[in-house]
Deep mutational scan, measured.
Amino acid sequence: KFGRVHERAEGPAKILAIGTATPFHWVDQSSYPDYYFRVTNSDHLVDLKEKFRRICNRTMISKRHMFLTEEILQKNPNLCSHNEPSFDVRQDILVSEIPKLGKEAVLMAIDEWAQPKSKITHLVFCTRSGVDMPGADYQLIKLLGLSPSVQRVMMYQQGCFAGGTMLRLAKDLAENNKGARVLVVCAESSAIGFRGPSEDHPDNLIAQALFGDGAAALIIGSDPKMGLERPIFEIVTTAQTFVPNGDCHLALHLREMGLTFHCTKDVPPTIAKNVESCLIKAFEPLGISDWNSIFWILHPGGNAIVDQVESTLGLEPNKLQATRNILREYGNLSSACVLFILDEIRKKSGREGLKTSGDGLDLGVLLSFGPGLTIETVVLR
């Protein structure tokens, strides 16, 4: 008597548009150690500064975009301390800036989509910054002038794996609601975790050397309108798992001094060791076991992770080039990073006149991972 209210779509979910945005301000990685130790009044920690310089040199990052300028840091000195309470200051900045950054990426996506924004039916927003109620999803709806009846899902504090999570959720929403057009937004800022150095917490140096700011937005829907919408990728399958006891290797915690970062040297080999089982589960039903026969979007948690995944799986050097390019130009953008790589690989395919948006290949994989050593596996066509 009370059956399904919403009719299912006929076809699989497809990515119809991609937009990205970054803050205008950026830092050069080669000179960042001098800048970082100067603005945090830590130049007296000579040995720690040299250690940080070595870490920065190993990241293979060229530059990173950041909202925090020297002027902002001078006005808010607690942000430059390692342990002073600064959460309220971070909140005041990020509750406002995260939706604005997301808006810039959304406008780029809508411009490519070339359809009225009134056709957006759902919003899925993800960030690890600016936790608030009502959330960044609500603020973004107002900034864009979208209908208050847009169906919203707000996900805070997920971390680097969440780019894949957003695709998984959007696929379910698009395929189970005929005519749905799902706006996916990942907006991230390193301002939540920026803090001064400490000899007692070397993990913090890794975070300060890796993370950048950026937002990515996608429009996802099934059954694209012929002649009006141009699909870029099809989302074939999605899956999530985590490595048992992985939280002892990688975890982040909200504290009075901001978001703290805990990471062990076992993260790269542990991820590399567990990736292939995810690939087998995803691609065995499709008859694929040659990992060089697919295109790759791999989250660059750090250069060591990229190198070890490449080595463990025997990947050809060009397979992870898009990942390395984004890491070099932006650093680790947390949940937004794989979506930047997705954009990079389709643009490169277009520039080179390849037959598909995925490096000329039919199928590919998007792998994202993060806290708890959670792994998201997304098969794309």
Rank of each mutant, 00 (worst) to 15 (best):
C248E: 15
I232P: 02
E276N: 00
D28H: 03
L252N: 15
D92V: 02
T40E: 03
V243N: 14
M133I: 05
R328H: 07
E310N: 00
A322Y: 08
P231L: 02
G350K: 11
P244M: 01
S129N: 10
N245Q: 01
E229G: 04
P116S: 11
R53N: 10
I232V: 05
V236K: 03
L373K: 15
E112I: 05
E70D: 05
T238R: 06
L228H: 09
E310Y: 00
L286M: 06
T22D: 05
L250R: 13
K51A: 00
A13L: 02
A136K: 06
I232Q: 11
M60K: 15
E376W: 00
N292M: 09
Q139C: 05
L45T: 12
T270L: 08
I297K: 12
I72R: 09
K51L: 06
I341K: 11
I55V: 10
A282G: 02
S311N: 09
V378S: 15
A336R: 11
K1T: 14
R38I: 01
Q139P: 14
R255L: 07
A251F: 13
S289E: 10
K119G: 07
R381N: 00
N57Q: 03
E84R: 10
P371E: 14
E316C: 09
P244D: 13
H6T: 11
F233C: 05
M108T: 07
T20W: 08
C278M: 02
S81W: 10
H249S: 14
P317W: 03
L101T: 10
I61G: 10
R8F: 00
S293I: 01
P99G: 15
I141Y: 12
V131Q: 14
I375H: 13
T241K: 12
R346D: 05
T270V: 09
G19H: 05
D343V: 00
D132L: 10
K281T: 10
V95P: 01
N274G: 10
G145F: 04
I305H: 00
A239Q: 05
S349D: 02
K51Y: 12
I297V: 12
R4K: 15
E256I: 07
L259C: 15
G301Q: 06
H249C: 14
V306T: 08
W291C: 06
V95A: 11
W291G: 04
V267T: 14
I345L: 11
P33S: 13
E376D: 14
E276C: 07
C80Y: 12
Q240L: 09
P317Y: 14
M133A: 03
N332A: 05
V365G: 15
S81C: 02
R58V: 01
G364Y: 02
I15M: 01
F87A: 14
S334A: 05
V5M: 13
N318D: 07
N325L: 00
F261R: 15
H82C: 13
E310I: 09
S357H: 02
S86R: 13
I232C: 10
F52S: 03
L363T: 15
F261L: 08
T264L: 14
K51F: 01
P371I: 00
D266Q: 12
R381L: 00
A304Y: 04
A282D: 12
I305S: 03
L254S: 13
S149P: 07
S62C: 03
P33Y: 12
D137P: 12
R255F: 02
L333D: 08
F369P: 15
K51E: 11
E284V: 01
E376S: 05
T20S: 05
G370W: 11
I98W: 03
K348V: 05
T40P: 03
H25Q: 06
L339E: 13
I375E: 11
V46C: 04
P269I: 04
V5F: 05
L339Y: 15
T377I: 03
L228A: 05
V27L: 07
G19Y: 00
C263T: 15
D47Y: 04
R4I: 08
G301K: 14
T127H: 03
L140F: 05
L259V: 02
R381H: 06
E310M: 11
L123F: 05
P300W: 02
N274V: 14
N318L: 04
S62I: 07
T238N: 03
N274H: 15
E234G: 08
D88L: 08
S311D: 04
S149A: 02
I18E: 02
D359Y: 02
S334Y: 09
T238Q: 05
F52H: 02
L286V: 02
E329A: 03
T241F: 12
K347C: 02
E7A: 09
F295H: 04
T40M: 11
A13T: 08
I141D: 03
I232E: 08
S293Q: 03
E316T: 13
L342C: 03
L259A: 14
P371N: 06
I326A: 15
S129E: 13
A9Q: 01
M66R: 05
N292Y: 04
L252H: 15
C263W: 09
I297W: 08
L366I: 12
K119W: 09
L339N: 14
T20E: 02
S349V: 10
K355L: 02
I93F: 08
H82N: 05
G314I: 00
L367Q: 14
D290H: 11
E276V: 07
T260C: 15
T238E: 08
L380A: 14
A282F: 00
K281E: 11
I61W: 04
S30D: 02
K63Y: 05
E284M: 03
E376Y: 00
L315C: 03
L146H: 02
E229D: 05
S62N: 08
K142C: 00
V243R: 07
N332E: 07
F283K: 00
D359E: 13
F125T: 13
R324S: 05
P268C: 13
P317A: 08
G11L: 05
S357A: 03
D28R: 09
V124R: 02
S81F: 11
F295E: 02
I15F: 04
T22V: 13
Q308Y: 13
R128T: 14
F261Q: 15
V378I: 08
R324M: 06
P33G: 10
F295P: 15
W26T: 04
G145E: 01
N76W: 07
C126R: 01
V46M: 10
W291T: 07
T323N: 01
D266L: 04
G302W: 13
R8M: 08
M60Y: 11
G372A: 10
P23L: 04
L327Y: 15
F283V: 03
E329M: 00
D307P: 11
I18D: 00
M133T: 11
F52M: 03
P85A: 15
I341W: 06
I93G: 10
N274E: 13
D92N: 14
T59G: 07
L342A: 08
Q91V: 04
S289C: 11
A322C: 13
N41V: 04
S335I: 05
Q91K: 06
G130D: 11
K355D: 04
F283M: 04
R90S: 08
F295W: 06
